[in-house]
Every structure is written in C-alpha cells, then in structure tokens.
Amino acid sequence: MRNDTMPRKNWFDAGGSAYAQFRPEYPAGLSTYLAGIAPTREMAVDVGCGSGQLTRQLARYFDSVIGLDPSEDQIANARAHDKVRYLCAPAEKLPLADNKASLITAAQAAHWFDLPAFYAEARRIAVENAVIALISYGVLRLEPDDLQERFIRFYRNEIGPYWPPERKLVDTGYPDISFPFDERAAPEMEICRAWELGEFLGYLSTWSAVRRVNDAGREDILTGFVRDISELWGDPTRKRPVSWPVNMRLGTI
C-alpha cells in the first residue's frame, strides 16, 4: 500500500545546506579520544571539513580549530563557533604556518585528496609528535531487515555504477590507502541515530552518486527507491535506528 502521507518533494535536490543539515554528527567519544592522544591542545586542523561536523566537536578541547574545505558552498554553510576559523582551501595547499597543529584530521574526505601533497602539507604544519587521523564511516545500517535489504539493493545495484571509484576506499575503511606514518590502533566506534524518513532521504541527497544519477537524467531510479522505502517505512514520522561503523587510520607525525 502506498504511503500517501509522504510529502511530495524532490529529496535529491541538494547543496551545501543539505550537507550541513543531514550529515550525521560523529560520536562525542571521537573528539574526546583524539584530544587525549594529541601532544598539546593548542591547535587542531580539520582538512576537508565540509560544513564542520567534526570541526565544531574538536573546539570543545582545543584552544583553536581551523576548518578547511575547497568548496565555498560548504564553508558558507558551516556553523560558526567562537573557537573555529573556517577557510576555503584545498588539502594540498594549506594556508597555515609551519609547526602549529597538534592534531590534523580528515573526516570522510581523504579519499578525494592528492595524498602525497596533503601528507607533505600535514608534516609542514605539524608540531613534533602531532597526530594525524583519517576518519571515515562505512555503509549505513537500517533496521528492520526489510528496510536494509531495499536500501542495499539501491546502494549497490541501482546507484552503484554512479559512485566514483574513491567510494570503495570509504566502504572498506581506508585499509589500502597510503599512510606513511607511525601507525597506532584505533578504538572501535559507531555513529547511531534515530531518524524519520525525511532525515534519512535528506542524508542520501548529499551523496555524490545521487547527484550523478540526477545529472544522467535517471531520476526514475531515485523516485522508485523513494516509493519503495516509503511503503516499507510506514509512518514517515516514525524514527528508525540508523548506524554507521566509524573507521580510522591514526598515526604520529
């Protein structure tokens, strides 16, 4: 039976504002842990910060935090914090002084970088024994199983061909990515949320594969998925459990 209470809108017409609204926040324990292993708490630098999901959390623990992203749209939609300064800049050319950062993070972003160039910049701006963390979260998990099964079919088969090759690095947690640092084990963490249907679809709207589907004129893929997932979800205001595994490559510079 069709869920006719679902608002009729284009859930997949998204920009930086959708990213800021719908991308999930990281667990509080992540920033607590990273601050605990940094050699000082003077400065943290979040590269590829997007709209600042992790950047703001780091501000709880560091005297100052710099968030950098090459997208003016993302920076324009980043939420302000009195200890955070946002700059529009690429990972490969950081507009920061030498030997200043105690922690350098890249959250859900490193797969887009020219890694040798980024690593050279990270070494340049780092203090002695600074921590570098490449953070990602994997494929989401929905409950119950019928929702998960329909989502996985959408993710792997229907929009799978539209994912850029770099997405595979995220799905696997960066195990094969170049990481020339003294590496340390990372704790297990998970992002857990309870979302209404609109929040779930809003999150999907931020995906690069979804934008490519739209650009290819295959809106039928998206509307078909919205129809099916709405029917399975039931009441669109009902909150369903959503979770993601958090993966990290941690090292000392």
Rank of each mutant, 00 (worst) to 15 (best):
A38E: 05
T55V: 06
F62D: 12
A59F: 05
A20E: 12
Y33C: 06
V65K: 01
K83W: 00
E25R: 15
L58W: 00
V45A: 02
F62T: 09
L94V: 10
Q21K: 12
G67F: 01
P24M: 11
P70K: 08
I75H: 02
S31V: 11
L34A: 08
Y26K: 14
S71I: 14
H81K: 01
L30V: 13
A76R: 09
A59N: 06
R56W: 02
E72R: 06
Y61I: 09
E72T: 12
E42Y: 04
M43E: 13
A91P: 08
T55Q: 05
Y33E: 11
A80F: 07
C88P: 10
R56N: 12
D69Y: 02
F62I: 06
G52W: 01
Q57H: 06
S51I: 00
T55M: 04
S64C: 11
R23W: 05
D69H: 04
Y26V: 13
L94F: 05
G36A: 11
A38N: 03
R23A: 07
Q53M: 05
K93S: 15
R85P: 00
S64L: 05
A89R: 01
Y33R: 10
L34F: 04
G50F: 03
M43N: 05
V47A: 03
T40Y: 09
R60H: 15
I66T: 13
H81G: 07
I66E: 09
S64N: 08
C49L: 07
P90E: 03
Q53L: 11
L54D: 03
G67K: 00
T55E: 04
A38P: 03
I75Q: 00
G36D: 13
T40S: 14
Q74V: 06
G48P: 05
L87T: 08
P39C: 09
V47Y: 03
Q21E: 15
D82P: 15
H81E: 09
F62P: 09
D63W: 00
L54M: 12
M43P: 02
L68M: 11
I37A: 05
R56V: 15
A28Y: 04
N77K: 12
K83F: 07
R41Q: 15
P70C: 10
A38C: 07
Y26T: 13
D73R: 06
P27N: 12
S71F: 13
Y61W: 15
G67V: 01
D63C: 07
T55H: 02
Q53V: 00
Q21N: 08
L34W: 01
G67Y: 00
R79G: 14
K83M: 08
C88F: 08
R85Q: 12
E72S: 13
S64D: 10
R23E: 09
S31K: 06
Y26I: 13
Y86P: 08
P90N: 02
R56H: 08
R79K: 12
E92K: 10
Q21S: 13
D73A: 14
E25W: 10
P39G: 10
L34T: 09
T40D: 14
A28M: 12
Y86H: 04
P27H: 10
R23V: 11
P24F: 09
E42G: 12
V84P: 01
R41M: 07
D46M: 04
I37P: 02
L34R: 02
A44R: 00
